[in-house]
């Protein structure tokens, strides 16, 4: 494991080092020290390397991740794993707003709480939150799964497309066109597998499923008078 200390190195050189790791190179794992809330750490990684960050990170950590596994021992600022394509991002603390925003794939695990707009416009990513999420979780979420082991804030799944939301705790309120749906055996099986992959000790049967009522997909002539 190679140590990269941000109290000695600048952020750009650390990111360049991580991004430049070639497939088959001897060292495929890194430890990043003293992040001190810096922004855009470990972004744009395209190889299946391991990055462990010790400390709190700022905005947009692990953005655009592809194939890499990024673990943060600490909290994260807004935009964690934004637009992730694949790989895994795991954070031991809390994530600020818009965690996993517009992610296309891979797995994002927030072991603590995630703030507002978690999974906004997600497009295939799986997000598993050990704690609770703030308001407007899965806002305009298109595909993928958002799993919340705690509670969800107001406006959950507002204007949701075909993403699936699972919540174990209380839902403060559902957003426009988001409804509770039946939990079929297939859903239970898939959710149990995802919880296992995320390392969450939670029973799939204790969750409820939410998704789109699909009433906003087409213009409704009955509403013409409103425009």
């Amino acid at each position: 494991m190679i140590d990269l200390d941000l109290s000695q190195l600048n952020l750009r050189s650390v990111n360049e080092r991580l991004q430049a790791t070639l497939p088959g190179a001897n060292e495929q794992s890194y430890r990043v020290l003293h992040p001190n809330g810096c922004h855009a750490l470990a972004v744009g990684l395209t190889q299946p390397i391991e990055v462990k960050v010790e400390g709190h990170v700022g905005f947009y950590c692990a953005g655009m991740n592809q194939a890499a596994s990024v673990e943060v021992a600490g909290h994260a600022g807004p935009g964690l794993a934004e637009n992730m394509m694949s790989g895994e991002v795991r954070i031991s603390g809390n994530a600020s707003q818009s965690a996993g925003a517009s992610g296309h794939g891979g797995l994002l695990v927030v072991e603590g709480d995630a703030a507002s707009r978690c999974g906004i416009s997600m497009k295939g990513i799986d997000i598993v939150v050990g704690g609770s999420i703030g308001h407007f979780g899965a806002f305009m979420a298109q595909s993928g799964r958002l799993v919340v082991c705690g509670d969800a804030g107001a406006g959950l799944g507002d204007s949701i497309y075909e993403a699936t939301v699972f919540v174990r705790g209380e839902v403060e309120g559902l957003g426009a066109d988001c409804v509770e749906k039946e939990m079929t055996p297939d859903h239970l099986k898939a959710l149990a597998a995802l919880l296992g992959q995320a390392g969450m000790d939670a029973k799939a049967a204790s969750f409820r499923r939410y998704g789109s009522a699909r009433k906003l997909y087409n213009f409704d002539i009955d509403h013409a008078g409103a425009y």
Binding site: N36, G37, C38, H56, F59
Partner: peptide, 13 residues
Amino acid sequence: TEYRSIAVLPGAE
């Protein structure tokens, strides 16, 4: 506004 400003304080860790 950002954690960066807290990280500089004594005892922040």
